[in-house]
Computed example of a mutant assay.
Amino acid sequence: MIGNLFTLKQLEALIWVADLGSFRRAAAHLNTTQPNISARIAGLESTLGVTLMRRDAGSIRLTEKGHALLVQARRVLREAERLVDIAARPDLIDDSLRLGVTEVVASTWLRPFLRSLAEAYPNLTVELTVDLSRDLDQELAANALDLTVQTAPFSTPASGQLNLATYDYIWVAAPELAAQIGPAPDLAALVRHPVLGHARHTQAYQDLIGYFDGTRAPKARLVPSSSLSAAMNMVLDGMGVAVMPRVMVAPALAEGTLKTLSATWHPQPLQVAARYHTERTPGHVSRAAELARSCAEAFDVQDQKNLSRP
């Protein structure tokens, strides 16, 4: 038997050094010290009699053997996680999940999702990032995040992707401004006011640009923002109109602090997906994505019930 030759911690160190490109970053992720990580890698190399990686001008490069062993190390750790699954001991998953979400998710069903994660994996630590989808995309590609819940379009591929929800856009304004504009405004009536909304690189903003450029309406005063919450606060204060995901402004509509404008055009619906890299993430990441889908679906059911209430 080879059970005493190397440990799961050594294989774990190999994986994280390879994924993060740094002994220091691997040590921080695994809550240990850099010398400890170095010792694990050195012990694995000594036992197997191979060189796994080379340090070159501050960077880490896997050798040919290192790449081959990395693939097998991932398989071994996944199989070890299956032992935990069979034993029904999710509390033994003592790891961190680097989760990135967009603001739409953070303002709607993030809390029940985090509660579901805590119930499923009580010793899993969530490192949360709330950012623009474009930036989450880049961080996922760079191995800086394990799982993203973000909005299309996606600029980089991910081998694991679950479609979670589709959110329609609506035009809204503060009650006083909505009364001035009227119940069924034409485009010219809308663009007499600043149009608040998404950041410049988003699909919704590009849809706005494309639509307004193709009309004879007065030039719109588009006011992009990297924070939809900040844009919504500006709308609440009567500083302009906005086209927003309905799910995000639903509470304000229910309270009467925002009013819907019955415009005839809207950006294409917002597509939300959970994304991860199947080949290099542990099993609990894919299960977290499944939990995200369940929470998104449950939130949508409740949202539809709220809409149907008189």
Rank of each mutant, 00 (worst) to 15 (best):
W265Y: 12
S262P: 00
H277A: 11
P282S: 08
Q271H: 11
P282I: 05
S262V: 08
S227Y: 07
V223S: 08
F212D: 01
Q268P: 03
R275E: 02
P282Y: 06
R287M: 12
V235F: 00
V223Q: 11
M248S: 05
M232N: 06
M248N: 00
A273Y: 09
P245L: 10
D237W: 09
V247L: 13
T264W: 08
S229N: 10
E255C: 01
G256Y: 01
V243Q: 12
D213H: 12
A252K: 04
A220M: 06
R275A: 03
F212I: 02
G256S: 03
P267I: 08
R246T: 11
R287F: 10
A288R: 07
R280L: 05
V241E: 06
P224C: 07
V241G: 07
A288C: 11
A242H: 01
H284M: 14
S226V: 12
A263E: 10
M244N: 06
M239C: 07
G214V: 07
H284I: 06
V247N: 11
K219T: 14
T257M: 00
V247D: 14
Q268I: 08
T281K: 11
T281W: 01
F212Y: 14
F212N: 01
L253T: 02
A231L: 06
P224F: 07
A254V: 04
R287S: 13
H266M: 14
P269L: 09
T215G: 10
K259Q: 15
P218D: 08
T281G: 00
R221S: 10
R275Y: 03
A220F: 05
S262H: 14
A250C: 00
